[in-house]
């Protein structure tokens, strides 16, 4: 810190001096950041604000420009029927929405926790020294490199009820008594989605954890070995605390990814309400059901939920990102 070129003086015992060099650098920094910030404002900031705005209007797909402000109607409104009964309408009382929220959270928690455990196991295996380690590391990169849509298609072929190889394998090994329509049955649809997601993203988790593992100095283990610490205890007392920062960051990246999941479910289990997530439902309303404003309300709520969960996670987990201070 003390040798930073641009360290700014705080204690001022005399006239504050801003040197030519520092002025030049700060000006350059502003100039360099401007295009990027402008680009982000245009592609992210403005659309986000518009999406939120639409959620308070009666916009429809063919009448976006003529959208009129209707307040919180898309979220919650009171309807009095002719019979005099009072009915609540809107997103906040829409069972389909809350089903999607539940599906999303269930999916995110299950997939990320299973991926963390499996990723840790794979990372531990890869951290050991053995012949062919390079091949294993290359092999686990393959699922990561395959586009999500492609893996969804590959797996839906493998999970196919009639001609799928997994049913065949399960029957041969005696694990299944009859062929299962994995993606079409409500009970198994979520399992199918989880299998594919875990297959595809465990490598990412494993590699992040592995990077953390490799920063643990080897002599710590040697010292523990000499002290006769049991390997299981070594894992919980040494390894886990030391890779915790890496693990926490890996988990939050995956969690955010899982909470916005769209493509895998859209392709693998279309039309299954057992797996319909917030993103899938929101897009359906926006573009397939012509409920543009209602869909916008969903995407706004989704944004809020994810932002809230993220803040909660960072706060509770005391996650520290490398904030970039040199």
């Amino acid at each position: 810190m003390a040798t930073d070129v641009m360290a700014e003086p705080v204690v001022q015992t005399g006239v504050k001096i801003k040197s030519e060099l520092m002025q030049q650098r700060v000006r350059a920094a502003q100039l360099f950041l401007l295009p990027m910030l402008l680009a982000l404002a245009v592609v992210a900031g403005w659309p986000l604000l518009r999406s939120i705005y639409f959620s308070f209007t009666d916009a429809s797909l063919n009448n976006i420009d003529g959208a009129e402000w209707i307040g919180f109607g898309n979220y919650l409104r009171v309807q009095t029927l002719d019979s005099g009964a009072v009915r609540y309408r809107g997103l906040l009382v829409d069972p389909a929405w809350w089903n999607a929220v539940w599906n999303t959270l269930r999916f995110a928690v299950l997939s990320v926790s299973l991926e963390a455990v499996l990723g840790m196991l794979v990372a531990l295996v890869l951290n050991a020294e053995f012949r062919g380690r390079g091949i294993v590391r290359a092999a686990i990169l393959i699922p990561w490199a395959i586009p999500t849509i492609v893996s969804a298609k590959m797996w839906s072929w493998m999970l196919n009820d009639q001609f799928g190889i997994l049913n065949d394998l399960g029957m041969r090994l005696g694990l299944l008594s009859q062929k299962v329509a994995w993606t079409a049955t409500a009970e198994t649809a979520m399992t199918a989605v989880l299998i594919v997601d875990i297959w595809k993203t465990t490598p990412f988790m494993a590699l992040l954890i592995l990077a953390g593992l490799q920063m643990v100095p080897k002599d710590i283990y040697e010292a523990a070995e000499i002290d006769g610490v049991h390997p299981v205890k070594q894992f919980f007392k040494i390894t886990l605390p030391l890779v915790r920062p890496a693990l926490m960051v890996a988990i939050i990246f995956r969690l955010l990814d899982a909470l916005r999941i769209f493509d895998l479910i859209y392709v693998l289990t279309p039309n299954s309400s057992a797996t319909k997530t917030m993103s899938v439902l929101a897009r359906e309303n926006l573009f397939d059901f012509d409920k543009f404003a209602y869909g916008s309300a969903m995407s706004t709520l989704l944004f809020l939920i994810i932002a809230l969960l993220t803040i909660l996670y960072i706060w509770l987990g005391k996650v520290r990102f490398d904030g970039g201070d040199r």
Binding site: S51, F253, L256, A282, S299
Partner: peptide, 27 residues
């Protein structure tokens, strides 16, 4: 370059990269 708000800017950039894309879809 050290300047005020650098840490905050980095967090904003990280946040945008992890954005749920559906949230900006209609806009």
């Amino acid at each position: 370059v050290r300047f005020r708000g650098r840490g905050f800017l980095l967090m904003v950039i990280l946040a945008v990269s992890m954005f749920p894309q559906i949230a900006v879809l209609s806009g």
